[in-house]
Structure formats: C-alpha cells, structure tokens
C-alpha cells in the first residue's frame, strides 16, 4: 500500500506491506536507528516518536496508520550536534542517561510532555514519563533534565517536589 509520510521534515512516498510496523519503517526502510525496539509490546517506550506532535509507541502503530502524518524522531530533534534541542541539552547537562538505550524514547516522550504541560511539577514529569522504562533505573536525573528543559531549576524549587519523591540536590 502506498503511503505518504514526512519524517524529520523529509516527505517520502513508499509502498509498504500493511503489517509493517512504524518502528521498522523508521529503522529498516529509512535507516533511522535512533528509535529503539525494546519490549516490542508497548510497555517500555524505547520506540517513542512524535506523530503530528504527539508521543506514540511506534512498535504498536502500523506504518499505514501513519499515512499522511508528520513524524519526528530523535534524529530530527536537534539541528546539529553542536546545536542541541533544549531537551537533549538538558539530558546532557543533568546526565539524564546511563546505558542510553531508553534515551531516544525518553527524550521524545519528554518533548511531547512539555508540549502539553510546559511547566510540569516533578510529579507531573514522573506521571508523564510513566510509559518509558529505564532499566538502569536512572530516573532521578531524567526527571531533573525535564524540569531543566522546562526552564525550571530542579534545585531551586523545592515546591516542585511531591510528597514521597525527591530529586535531591546533593547538598
């Protein structure tokens, strides 16, 4: 079936099998391998991309369902390695990654979160990222990175911290 999909600003007409999953279209057809396949059951979020600006798990979307949409993957987020998207820069600044496998999906989910909640509380960040698993359990700095990217200082705003949670400040 013919589909017309724009990925990272580049439109393409492709003939695909209906059963081709969006994540395989991105990785295997287009060669955009930042988007990872983790659990392959829509639990872990490693395959998260933005479809028309909304975060979705691309392992659970058919390419034909994305016909006519505009998709952003991690490759399309930052203009260049020297000019990082604010979310990517915040992940670097706060060291919001360990092994890095969950990172592309985590960053895309976080970008989608801030589109809907521009200044989230820490609790809202954790709720908003609950579809993304980090098996290194490095959530702490990821949450700090998202707060940073939203223009908030995770150290200077103790009221952001919900009961039962803490980003800590190291002091």
């Amino acid at each position: 079936m013919k589909v017309h999909i724009t990925v990272n600003g580049v439109p393409a007409d492709t003939d695909v099998e209906p059963r081709l999953l969006l994540v395989h279209y991105l990785r295997d057809t287009l060669g955009l391998t930042a988007t990872n396949v983790g659990c392959d059951t829509s639990s872990c979020g490693a395959c998260t991309v933005l479809v028309d600006g909304e975060s979705v798990k691309s392992c659970t979307v058919l390419t034909v369902q994305a016909d006519g949409t505009d998709i952003t993957t991690l490759e399309g987020l930052s203009p260049s390695p020297d000019e990082l998207h604010p979310m990517a820069a915040a992940f670097r600044q706060e060291h919001g990654l360990q092994c890095g496998f969950c990172t592309p999906g985590m960053v895309m989910a976080a970008v989608g979160l801030l589109e809907e909640h521009p200044r989230p509380t820490e609790r809202e960040v954790r709720e908003g990222l609950k579809g993304n698993l980090c098996r290194c359990t490095g959530y702490h700095n990821i949450v700090r990175a998202v707060l940073r990217a939203s223009g908030q200082d995770p150290d200077a705003a103790p009221d952001l911290v919900a009961p039962g949670f803490s980003t800590g400040s190291g002091t």
């Binding site: 829509s42 979020g45 998260t48 909304e54 975060s55 979705v56 798990k57 659970t60 979307v61 989910a109 989608g112 979160l113 809907e116 908003g128 609950k130 579809g131 993304n132």
Partner: peptide, 9 residues
C-alpha cells in the same frame, strides 16, 4: 489508563 503514549492512540 496506560501512559500518555497509549492515551494518545
């Protein structure tokens, strides 16, 4: 329900 990505779909 689920998580934000699931609720978008």
């Amino acid at each position: 329900v689920g998580d934000p990505q699931v609720r978008h779909r």
